[in-house]
């Protein structure tokens, strides 16, 4: 593992691993609260946010787009809550209404405004540009100790790392109310656990992780990681603390196995091209879920 690996392989793997774990962490509570579809919802609603950001700034740069995407995501989360409460309907239905409407609004904005010059790349949105997030300035592991080299890390690296830190800190500090509102929200309200605020923060946090991850690794990993590692871990344990730790380990494993498989499997099989790393990481997380659904110790849901 020499300098070539650090420059070309390490940063994409780490960025993907940070993204996977940052999504899996809130995913645990979203799955238990039956809100796991929020990953899909966010991936749809960010479109109008990105288009509006482009229309306002006139260029395709990262920060305005991320702010636009985050704004659209938070708007939709608020809309979902409002529709759920005012319409007295279940969360999934409210989510369906909001994310199709927001996606439609995004397409409409795109069609009606002069954005024909914008090349909205479907492939980028789905799979990100993981393989291009390289650290060319580095010359081996020693670069991690050199400030001027660290400053040249891909911006996605720092961003995803910060997001992972924030989601970890949030989960640690708000562990008790998160467990409470996931198990028994009505009771949580009666003992002062601030169910509404914690539930809202959880979704905002997942949104933040998702929006940061879209730019770095694409929506496929986001959707897969909010759902697959927590669901897999749930089938392997009956203890929520173990479940959360296991889900982080599974997210990390899927990333490593997926990235390496995408890069080397076709070569080993005699093909000359490689596979999409993001796509393969998502596939591996799905396979892990399938395996645990068949062999997991605690798959007692079907009654």
């Amino acid at each position: 593992m020499g300098s070539e690996f650090v420059a070309l392989g390490l940063t994409p793997i780490l960025i993907a691993a940070f993204a996977s774990m940052a999504c899996a962490l809130p995913g645990n509570f979203l799955v238990l609260r039956k809100q796991a579809l929020i990953g899909d919802a966010i991936s749809h609603v960010v479109l109008p946010g990105i288009v509006v950001a482009y229309l306002l700034t006139g260029k395709l740069s990262t920060w305005p787009m991320m702010i636009g995407a985050a704004g659209a995501a938070v708007t939709s989360v608020i809309l979902i809550e409002m529709i759920k409460r005012l319409g007295q309907i279940e969360y999934g239905a409210a989510m369906g209404v909001v994310f199709t409407a927001m996606f439609a609004a995004g397409v409409l904005l795109l069609e009606q405004s002069d954005t024909s010059r914008v090349h909205l790349d479907v492939e980028h949105a789905l799979f990100g540009n993981l393989e291009t997030l390289i650290w060319l300035q580095s010359d081996g592991w020693a670069s991690f100790l050199r400030f001027e080299d660290l400053a040249q890390l891909p911006p996605q690296f720092v961003r995803m790392f910060m997001v992972l830190l924030i989601t970890s800190a949030f989960t640690y500090v708000f562990w008790r109310p998160l467990v409470l509102i996931s198990f028994d929200e009505a009771y949580a309200r009666t003992i002062g656990a601030r169910a509404t605020i914690i539930g809202f923060l959880l979704v905002v946090l997942a949104t933040m992780a998702a929006v940061a991850a879209f730019d770095a690794v694409g929506s496929i990993i986001v959707i897969a990681m909010i759902l697959c590692p927590p669901a897999t871990a749930r089938l392997l344990t009956n203890d929520i603390k173990t479940q959360v730790l296991l889900s982080l380990f599974l997210a990390l494993s899927a990333t490593l196995v997926g990235y390496i498989t995408a890069g080397y499997l076709p070569l080993w099989l005699g093909f000359s091209n490689t596979l999409s790393a993001a796509g393969m990481i998502a596939t591996v997380s799905g396979l892990l879920l399938a395996i645990s659904a068949i062999y997991g110790r605690h798959r007692n849901r079907i009654t």
């Binding site: 238990l32 109310p177 467990v179 996931s182 198990f183 009771y187 749930r234 344990t237 203890d239």
Partner: peptide
């Protein structure tokens, strides 16, 4: 939900 009897009763001490 992945919790034990102890975990649930402990919630009363929140």
């Amino acid at each position: 939900f992945p919790a034990t009897v102890y975990d649930v009763v402990l919630m009363g001490l929140y």
